[in-house]
Design a protein around this nucleic acid. Structure first.
Lengths: 340, 340
DNA sequence: GTGAAAGCGCTAACAG
DNA sequence: CTGTTAGCGCTTTCAC
């Protein structure tokens, strides 16, 4: 009964005068242990300063108590809400989250997945549907519970929870068209390896086309995901003749950049130009002017995705993918106005 | 040599015609294995689809390949940059990050720390210096490499990397005083269990006091960390008589909310009122008006903290805490102007 | 340079 | 309800 630096289950057992198995049981099946012995064990745990070793537990081929999350980036607000919601739900159920970022590089994503699997995560959450073949193959081969967040897709290979980004694009385009705008510009991030942005952009352009409106290439700007970049890239938009009366941005951060760019040119939003985002990030409703956008409900998505994943983790058999659609909805606010 | 679902090291060994020990070695001490056998093993790995089991590795009492990160929240931009930088550096060195959030509840933080230790993280990163006694005790008792990010403190119990938040507060207060403002208001988050906010606020008030300025209580508003809340809480500020000519906010998000509140009241920033933040979050420089703030260099802090932690993890002996001060610097921008 | 064998800390049967 | 036993998958001496 030496005083090791880090007590193990045997030390605790000795201290409590029981066998290691009983200590183990009191953790994993407390109902199968007499209350009095459980008390004794608890005291022994406190005395020895014992902390369970999940690694030793995980090695039994069972629960590691972890889930993996792979996101493109943590560096901005996009995924913050989603991750927070997902994380909280997971924690509520006793899971710890391993988080990694691939910086929109799907080659990297595969490597990250591998490393998560090395840690024997019990489930994996990804963003969207653009993943490398290797990623999909590995997922299937290992038969890991997995869920894709943020984009609903009717025929997704894996379970998914999210809004229809295509619909989001159409909806916001409709909003602008309904307001009578015809001189329209768009500002989107790169759609490479990013199905969310691609779907949104496609939805916007498709709706506009159906409405008989085309957006000339010089009015389609591409910008990376930051207010600064969006503001810079958008500046040129307001020098064109004729000046666009509406700018549809791929997300709220870009929209905010566009608004700043307009204001810096002395233009008023929405009187001189209407601007829309997609996402309804926290802050968009409180900005001045508040930003018209499409609500995507990241909290809901994160929470549902976590539940779905937990179900899969605890479930016996792997059924077909579940797909849960979270409704998107245009939030009309101060940054848009009837045209001209 | 059956085709198990998930190959283990023995399957690989059989496939390669070597012993498990050699396979293990080729992972952990590749230089101790003949190149030719290593090749053979690699092929076997590919064929079997083997993925290392870190849990089994960690159980040897050695490397788990993980580090833990405990932050107050992921839900907003504050820590995004910091986390991203920290995470990237860790990943570069082969570590995977376990992330948890405590929602500014230090009781919870302790529990989270315990759960991270259950997973045998090799090191832990925390935010700031406000932690429960239990947390500090546990850290010391287990002798876990640990680093505190985001606030420099000369006499911290544990290693730390960050700017001096007290100085940040003083610096921004000086900026406002130098511009001739005397009717000053402040808008800060709760300083309970949050040493960063407390130090900043203290710095601001201390500097103002030294300059002979006091901020009456009704001009000290408390707001939670969001643009929406800040905007709401700040609204009353602009109804007071005399109206403050400057508002010092505890961070950039709150500053942005204050700016919107002012604009919504028809006030011009900075002509009617100057507003400052602290933090220089991404976006603050590109806002319109751009926000005068104090640069805290989250990327630098995150990266340095990671390096420090890695040093500790790899280092033989635990020396005294290292403390690295990252210089803070006022960024004077459009949201502030000489008074009256 | 490689293999055999003895655990790492814990859990899941199986007895009792 | 509790103890005994036999591993989980891997790493690390120690021989060879």
């Amino acid at each position: 009964m030496k005083n090791k630096l880090n007590a193990d289950i045997i030390d605790v057992a000795n201290h409590a005068g029981v066998s290691p198995a009983t200590v183990s049981r009191s953790f994993n099946h407390p109902d199968k242990v007499l209350l009095s012995t459980r008390k004794r064990i608890e005291r022994a745990i406190a005395q020895t300063g014992y902390i369970r070793n999940r690694a030793a537990q995980a090695i039994q081929g069972k629960r590691s108590g972890t889930v993996g999350l792979i996101v493109p980036t943590l560096d901005n607000a996009i995924f913050s809400n989603l991750i927070q919601a997902f994380s909280e739900e997971m924690r509520l159920h006793g899971f710890t989250m391993l988080v990694t970022t691939h910086g929109y590089d799907l080659k990297d994503e595969y490597l990250l997945l591998r490393s998560l699997l090395e840690h024997r995560v019990e489930g994996v959450a990804l963003i969207g549907h653009d993943h490398s073949d290797e990623t999909y193959t590995l997922l299937e081969r290992r038969n890991v519970p997995v869920v894709s967040m943020w984009n609903y897709k009717e025929d997704s290979k894996i379970s998914c929870v999210g809004g229809e980004n295509d619909q989001a694009g159409r909806a916001i385009a409709k909003h602008i068209v309904d307001l009578g705008h015809t001189e329209i510009a768009i500002a989107f991030p790169s759609v490479k390896e990013n199905d969310r942005a691609r779907d949104r952009k496609h939805g916007v352009l498709a709706y506009l086309a159906e409405a008989g409106l085309t957006v000339p290439v010089h009015r389609q700007i591409e910008t990376v995901y930051s207010i600064a970049n969006a503001r810079n890239s958008a500046a040129e938009l307001f020098e064109m003749q004729p000046r666009p009366t509406a700018v549809i941005a791929g997300n709220d951060v870009i929209a905010q950049g566009v608004i700043y760019a307009a204001q810096a040119k002395g233009l008023d939003v929405p009187n001189d130009v209407s601007v829309t985002g997609i996402g309804d990030f926290s802050g968009s409703a409180s900005a001045f002017p508040s930003v018209t956008t499409v609500r995507m409900r990241p909290n809901k998505v994160g929470k549902i995705a976590a539940s779905l994943l937990l179900e899969r983790i605890n479930g016996e058999d792997e059924t077909d993918p579940s797909r849960i659609k979270v409704a998107v909805e245009v939030k009309s606010r101060e940054s848009t106005k009837r045209c001209c």
